[in-house]
Simulated assay, not measured.
Amino acid sequence: MTTESADLYPVTRLADAQRATAAAGLGALLLTPGPDLRYVTGYDALPLERLTCLVLPAEGDAFLVVPRLELPAAEHSPASRLGVEFVPWDETDDPYAAIGARLGGVSRVGLADRMWAMQSLRFRDALPGAEQVLAGTVLRGLRMRKSPAEVAALREAGAAIDAVHAQVPEFLRAGRTEREVGRDIAEAIVAAGHATVDFVIVGSGPNGASPHHELSDRVIQPGEPVVVDIGGQMPSGYCSDSTRVYCVGEPPADFVKYYDVLQRAQEAACRAVRPGVACEAIDAAAREVIAEEGYGEYFIHRTGHGIGLETHEEPYIVAGNAEPMAPGFAFSVEPGIYLPGAHGARIEDILVCTEEGGERVNHRPRELVIV
């Protein structure tokens, strides 16, 4: 166990989650492999059809149910520091029934947000009198406010993806396909220190008008803008996500016009970040600049999303979310303008709310890069 891991996944998280469970009126949390389990225990368990589940009662001792063949991995994970009982089960056992018997007559349970449907239905049979709710409603307040160690992990992730964007001009040139460029970028993401590549978007020309464009065999043409949105997960478990726009040669005049608008919108949203400001106000700060210049209908998504152990998590920077910013909130600011059939652009940085305002963890230039 490294000091870094101990800081990222402190033993106090278990008690914090248990108090939140009790405060929410739940009898227990049932956390299967995924970000909720990793957040509470540090255990990055394999998502298998065989049940692995942390059972965290509102009162009493937590226990971790694991398939016997996964017991060594669990024992070598950060979960071993928590003092929880490890309960291995064999191939002919019914772990759902065993959990139901130990929990008894709980009336409400929180299921991990990423729990498989087959598992939630098995728990419904094992706990027939228990209402099922999302564990995220309990854990959101903990997960949204990043600790200093989590912020440091996000800074590391930001620096790693910035290093990849610094290489993108080497990969982009007319005559190459989006897929060829994307393959080079994916290799660079791993080389920069990421454990996994989560996504690589290379949207050239009209494909740049599709925010979540998949890599294709389209050949990049001279004079085309290219949207490059990339991210991955670091060994720490924390994620990167950053978008920059490039142009292969001289850009179209109409593109240059609205790219300037987009830069001003992204800057306005970043400046709006400070404690107490509603998430929707940050969205509005970007949207107002774009709308005033006549491009409002072409900004078709929210301004941002939270980030941490998941690329997309709370808080969401979107109209209707009145959640006030608080120190430790980490999220993207990524307004975009998309002209169907022509081209598009998006500028994305990850920010952390501090006592003073918003700290960017991405530092690559936001100006259009001409290659």
Results as ranks from 00 to 15, higher is better:
243 T>G: 03
210 S>K: 04
328 G>V: 06
325 M>P: 00
345 A>P: 00
299 F>Y: 15
202 V>L: 12
81 R>K: 03
278 A>E: 14
108 R>T: 11
238 Y>C: 10
45 A>S: 05
172 L>I: 07
285 A>Q: 05
190 V>G: 08
305 H>T: 05
322 A>Y: 08
168 V>T: 11
196 T>G: 05
266 Q>P: 00
136 G>E: 13
240 S>W: 12
148 P>A: 06
340 P>C: 05
158 G>L: 14
127 L>G: 06
191 A>Q: 10
257 K>G: 06
109 V>I: 15
246 Y>G: 00
269 A>F: 11
200 V>F: 04
134 L>A: 13
281 A>W: 03
16 D>Q: 15
308 G>C: 11
211 P>K: 06
253 A>M: 08
99 I>S: 09
224 E>C: 08
255 F>C: 01
204 S>I: 05
115 M>S: 08
251 P>G: 02
207 N>S: 07
280 E>Q: 15
345 A>G: 01
226 V>N: 05
98 A>L: 09
110 G>Y: 09
139 L>M: 05
135 A>W: 10
130 A>G: 03
257 K>E: 15
341 G>I: 09
56 L>A: 04
195 A>T: 06
25 G>T: 06
184 D>P: 00
87 V>A: 11
203 G>I: 07
11 V>Q: 09
144 M>W: 10
194 H>R: 10
293 E>T: 07
52 T>N: 13
102 R>K: 15
44 D>L: 15
305 H>D: 04
237 G>T: 12
362 N>I: 08
200 V>Y: 14
324 P>N: 07
190 V>C: 09
259 Y>R: 03
290 I>G: 01
110 G>W: 14
54 L>V: 00
253 A>E: 15
27 G>V: 07
312 H>G: 00
82 L>I: 14
198 D>W: 10
350 I>L: 15
365 P>F: 02
292 E>V: 01
133 V>Q: 13
55 V>P: 03
59 E>C: 00
39 Y>T: 02
174 A>S: 14
41 T>D: 03
116 W>H: 12
355 E>N: 00
7 D>E: 12
235 P>Q: 00
346 R>L: 15
171 F>W: 14
321 N>D: 15
345 A>C: 02
265 A>L: 08
81 R>A: 14
5 S>D: 13
304 G>P: 01
317 I>A: 03
193 G>R: 04
166 A>M: 03
153 A>C: 02
198 D>V: 12
138 V>D: 01
6 A>F: 06
352 V>N: 09
367 E>P: 00
34 G>Q: 03
199 F>P: 05
234 M>A: 10
6 A>G: 03
335 P>F: 12
75 E>A: 04
281 A>S: 11
83 G>N: 10
236 S>M: 04
281 A>F: 08
204 S>N: 10
